[in-house]
Design a protein around this nucleic acid. Structure first.
Lengths: 204, 204
DNA sequence: GCTATCATGTTTACACTGCTAACATTAAAT
DNA sequence: ATTTAATGTTAGCAGTGTAAACATGATAGC
C-alpha cells in the first residue's frame, strides 16, 4: 500500500541520480527516468529541484564530499612530501574510478557554483583541505601555499583528464613510445611520477 | 532562386557547428537548429552525419587542427626551454579562449576517437607535434621524450581546467590567498609558472 | 542523347526530453 | 477544526534525435 506522499523523495532522487550518473554519465540521465525509478510521477522531482541543473548540482555536491574524504589523510602536525604524493594519488584514483561524476564536478553541466551554496561549500572545502595539508608541509607564506596548492591540483586534474583521454584515442605509434603506453607507465607508477613533479614544486 | 541541392552542405554544417559550439557550448547545439541555419530541411544533415556524435567529431577534429596550429612554433633544429614554455602558453591560451570547443575535444561527447579516423589523426598529430618539440630539446630516449611530453600535456591541460573552474567557484577566502586570486596570479604569469614546472621536469 | 543509378534533399512520424500550469492530497500551523 | 503550505498527479507544449519512405537531380554507361 503506497501512500500519496513519498516521504523521502528528495534524498532518494539524489541517491538514484548519483548512481545513474556514475553508471551511464550525466548526459544519459533524465528527470523522467529518475522519477520512474523512484515510482513517482514524471513531474514530482520538480518539487525538489527547480531545474535539471539543480539536480546536477546536488550530484556534484555529493561528488566533492566523496573527493574530500578520498583525499583526507590522517596527519595531525607535520606532513611530508610522501603524504602529498598520497593525496595526489588518491585524487587521481578518485577521478579515474568515478570518471562520470568527476565530469559533472569539473565540467560545464553546472554553470555557476555560486548559485548552489551547498556545492560551493563542498567544492571550497575540498580545496581548503588540500591547502591545509600544504600548510603543514613547510612554513611558507599563505600566498606560496596557495600557489603550490593550485599547482598540485592542476597537475592531478590534468593527469585525470589526459589518462582518460589517451586510453580512448588509440596508439598507432611505436611500441612503448606512444601516448597510451607512456600514460599507462605513468598511471601504474603514479607515486613515482607525483614524487618527481612534487619535488620540483616544493624543492626541499 | 534556390536549387534543390545545396552544393556544399557538409562543409557549411561543420563551419556553422564550430561557430555555434564555441558560442553556446556543444550541449546547446541541435541538428535541427543547424539545418534551419543553413536553410535546409531538418533531416538533411543526416545525409552527411550518421549521428550527432559524428557531427561532434567533426567539430572536435577542427579543434585539434586549430590547436596544432596554435602550438606550432618555428624552430628548425634546436629547441630551448623557452620554446616549450611558449608552446605551453599557447596551449593554455587556446584552451581558455576556445573553452567550449576544448570541452568537445577533451570531454566525453565523442566517446571513442577510433571510430572517427580524421579525429584520431588530428588528435594524434597534435601529440606528435609536441613530441617532436621535446625531441629537439635534448637527446633523450624515446621513452623519456614521451614521458616529458605527457607530463607537460597533463600540466597545461590541468591548468586549463582549473583556471576555468576556479573562476566559477567563487572566492570567500582571505584576500590574495584564495584559489581565484592565486589562479589569476598564475594565469597572468603563465610564463613564469610554466618555466618553473618545466625546470623541474627537464632539469637542465 | 537516353537512361539507370546514386548521392542528396524533403516529408512524415515516433519516442523521448525539460518544463509549465492546473489540480489533488495530506501534513503542519493556527 | 480550519486554513495553509508542501508535496504529489495529470495534461500538455515545444523541442530533440533519428528512422522510413519519397523526391530530385547530378553523373556514368550505353
Amino acid at each position: 500500500m503506497k501512500s500519496y506522499h513519498h516521504g523521502n523523495l528528495k534524498q532518494e532522487l539524489i541517491d538514484c541520480a548519483c548512481r545513474l550518473c556514475e553508471r551511464d554519465g550525466y548526459t544519459k540521465l533524465s528527470i523522467r527516468s529518475l522519477a520512474k525509478e523512484s515510482g513517482v510521477s514524471q513531474t514530482a522531482p520538480y518539487r525538489h529541484f527547480e531545474t535539471k541543473e539543480t539536480l546536477y548540482a546536488s550530484v556534484a555536491t555529493e561528488g566533492f564530499k566523496k573527493l574530500s574524504i578520498a583525499c583526507h589523510i590522517d596527519a595531525d602536525k607535520k606532513i611530508t612530501k610522501k603524504h602529498l604524493v598520497e593525496i595526489g594519488c588518491n585524487y587521481i584514483e578518485f577521478g579515474l574510478k568515478n570518471a562520470n561524476t568527476y565530469d559533472l564536478m569539473f565540467g560545464t553541466a553546472v554553470g555557476n557554483f555560486a548559485e548552489y551554496p551547498e556545492l560551493l561549500e563542498s567544492a571550497n572545502s575540498t580545496y581548503e583541505n588540500m591547502r591545509l595539508s600544504f600548510s603543514k608541509l613547510a612554513s611558507d607564506s599563505d600566498e606560496v601555499i596557495a600557489y603550490k596548492c593550485i599547482t598540485l591540483w592542476s597537475m592531478v586534474h590534468g593527469l585525470v583528464g589526459i589518462l582518460r583521454k589517451v586510453q580512448v584515442v588509440g596508439d598507432d605509434f611505436e611500441e612503448g613510445v606512444g601516448p597510451i603506453s607512456t600514460a599507462s607507465v605513468i598511471a601504474t607508477n603514479l607515486e613515482d611520477h607525483l614524487d618527481k613533479v612534487l619535488t620540483g614544486l616544493i624543492q626541499n
